[in-house]
Write a protein that binds this DNA or RNA. Structure first.
Length: 560
RNA sequence: UGGCCUAUGGUGUAAUUGGUAACACAGCUGAUUUUGGUUCAGUCGUUCAAGGUUCGAGUCCUUGUAGGCCAACCA
């Protein structure tokens, strides 16, 4: 096997160049820094795969760091969910870190900055501060408190920490440049007062550091070498570097921030805020609703970690705007599931077939292939009897030769069983077919080796014996949004594009071997698609989620 | 009347750093098949524009054009 030379993305090029310039591989260290204010989604999966993937290729440690500087939005529930999702994706972090662990250190550094005259306490309201900030095209004005005495700043800042002020009364600002073309450099706020309970530090603090002041210093404290974030932070880089300059010791590793474009998936949204809205307003049942593009939703839908990693790998990392078609994600699950999912038979929209020349009380347990993709074929037993269910759409009274399925006077193979011929059908008063009467060729049993069993018939149908069928609730999902980019319309709310038919619940009949299926197990319902057992399954109710359909070239033909 | 970033088939991403534009998905043909699945073979189609440097430009330079981001005590 010759190893293909793998092409590198721009991030890997940056690392390779640093290595060429003398940076030691041993000093490489990465981090994945989620804010615990929501569940991880498919976009985060790209970032996770990037950072942890880099850790794997360079044998470097990767920290999981919670960016928990805003107690207003953050919760332990999200911390737990994030850890579960990263682990499930198959990655191991070196240290589990929290920005809140650095609060004391950050505070000391802030005091140092004040002493150096590089930070000051501003006693204005947020409105006043905003008014002085200027706009992208006009410079800002300096705060009247900008040149406060160092000892006054020290005193005020300590009193802020001690809880002597109400939220909003004071802030600590870095003294940089109110005329900078980069608005983030116009004396950015480092600390604000919040009398809020924090999920880790409880009520120990009533001042909380802002993102810019926290993030780079956290990277530095952890000695992260490369800090990757999304494009909207590109302008923050100048500030990131400025803050780093204030504390940097040249003996240590200086973290480097670089930005990549977030991945957008068609027919959904990847924004924690919007996903939260979908949950809160009840458009979906929960963060792990199988229609959600969250990691937990995809997991519940039946996606495999492997398929998501392959997807991330296939779409790559770059800096341009993008909208990745879901069909690529779907390809990745099918690719994986085709190899690993056991084949079973289930009928979702049943119509009864009666084999008139089969004994009334006859019953046979036939061998059925578990997965033709396996190197060594294994088999299970499926019951066959006189009355069966097949899919309604697999029968037509008459049809042209392109219809390979069952039609009056025509023959078809029942998968793993016999060749049958449709003789007549029974209809209700509305003309709907309620029963199809067939005869079977008793010499044609699959695998029997008889001449009749080798006969070529064009169509093969899946089926389930009525007497042995296991009833199951089947949840069939379609895209959550009808529009490819629901949140790209300036004049329309993304909710307007919700697909009202994204969930369809039907009662289906599956082969009895599925009675013992466990939550999370994945199967291919032959000729239909991939399904997995939902957590709502109980002892007397099986529930399946449809992960994705099989490629359906017949449906494509028909729609032409 | 600012600053930063980006532009490669329908979609996503590459191109040994200036040397034949390729890979995957999607589409289309056909073959195989006891899943209209899988597999296999084939096919369609690409460097934003205009100049410039060069023997040679997707890559470098200039000027445009288009799109994204920046005025939260969010991250």
């Amino acid at each position: 096997m010759s190893e293909e030379k793998k092409s590198l993305n721009f991030i890997e090029h940056i690392i390779e160049e640093d290595l060429r310039n003398g940076f030691s591989t041993d000093d490489l260290r990465f981090r994945f820094p989620p804010e615990p204010n929501g569940y991880l989604h498919i976009g985060h999966a790209s970032s996770i795969c990037l950072n942890f993937g880099l850790g794997l290729t360079y044998n470097a440690p990767v920290n999981l760091r919670f960016d928990d500087t805003n107690p207003e939005k953050e919760e332990q529930e999200y911390v737990d969910a994030i850890k579960r999702d990263v682990s499930w994706l198959g990655f191991e972090w070196n240290h589990e870190c929290y920005a809140s662990d650095y609060f004391p250190h950050l505070y000391e550094w802030a005091v140092e900055l004040i002493k150096q005259g590089k930070a000051y306490v501003d006693s204005q309201s947020s409105e006043e501060i905003a008014a002085q900030k200027g706009t992208p095209t006009t410079p800002g004005k300096e705060s009247p408190y900008r040149n406060r005495l160092i000892e006054d700043n020290l005193d005020l800042f300590e009193r802020m920490k001690n809880g002597e002020f109400e939220a909003g009364d004071q802030v600590l600002r870095a003294k940089i440049d109110m005329t900078s073309s980069n608005m983030l450099m116009r004396d950015p706020i480092m600390y604000r007062i919040m009398h809020k309970y924090h999920h880790r530090t409880a009520n120990n603090w009533c001042i909380y550091p802002m993102y810019d002041w926290t993030h780079g210093e956290s990277d530095y404290l952890e000695q992260v070498s490369h800090s990757f974030c999304t494009l909207e932070f590109a302008m923050h880089r100048e500030l990131y570097d400025w803050f780093l300059d204030q504390v940097y010791d040249s003996e240590k590793i200086r973290p480097k921030q670089r930005e990549f474009a977030r991945r957008n998936l068609s027919h959904t949204v990847v924004s924690k805020r919007k996903l939260l809205q979908l949950v809160k307003e009840g458009h979906v049942t929960a963060w792990d609703d199988p229609r959600m593009p969250t990691i937990s939703g995809l997991r519940r839908r039946g996606y495999t970690p492997n398929s998501i990693r392959n997807f991330a790998d296939t779409i790559g990392i770059a800096k341009r705007e993008n909208l990745i078609d879901v069909s690529l994600l779907e390809f990745c699950v099918r690719e994986d599931l085709n190899k690993i999912a056991p084949r079973v038979m289930g009928v979702l929209d049943p119509v009864k077939v009666v084999i008139t020349n089969y004994p009334e009380d006859g019953e046979e347990w036939l061998d059925a292939e578990n997965n033709p993709e396996d190197e060594v074929m294994t088999y299970r037993k499926v019951p066959f009897s006189r009355e069966l269910y097949i899919e309604k759409e697999d029968f037509r009274e008459e049809a042209n030769r392109k219809f390979f399925r069952l039609k009056l006077g025509g023959e078809v193979r029942l998968k793993n069983a016999y060749i049958i011929k449709a003789e007549s059908c029974v209809k209700d008063e509305n003309g709907n077919v309620t029963e199809i009467h067939c005869t079977y060729d008793e010499d044609s049993r699959s695998g029997s080796g008889t001449e009749a069993s080798m006969r070529k018939v064009k169509g093969t149908l899946h089926w389930v014996s009525v007497a042995h069928a296991q009833e199951a609730e089947i949840r069939i999902y379609d895209r959550l949004f009808a529009d490819a980019a629901p949140d790209s319309h300036k004049d329309k709310n993304f909710l307007e594009f919700i697909n009202p038919d994204s969930l369809q619940v039907v009662t289906g009949y599956v082969e009895p071997s599925l009675a013992s299926a466990k939550v999370g197990e994945r199967f291919q319902f032959q000729r239909i698609g991939y399904f997995c057992v939902d957590k709502d399954t109980t002892n007397d109710q099986l529930v399946f989620n449809k992960t994705v359909g099989l490629r359906d070239t017949w449906a494509k033909l028909e729609s032409k």
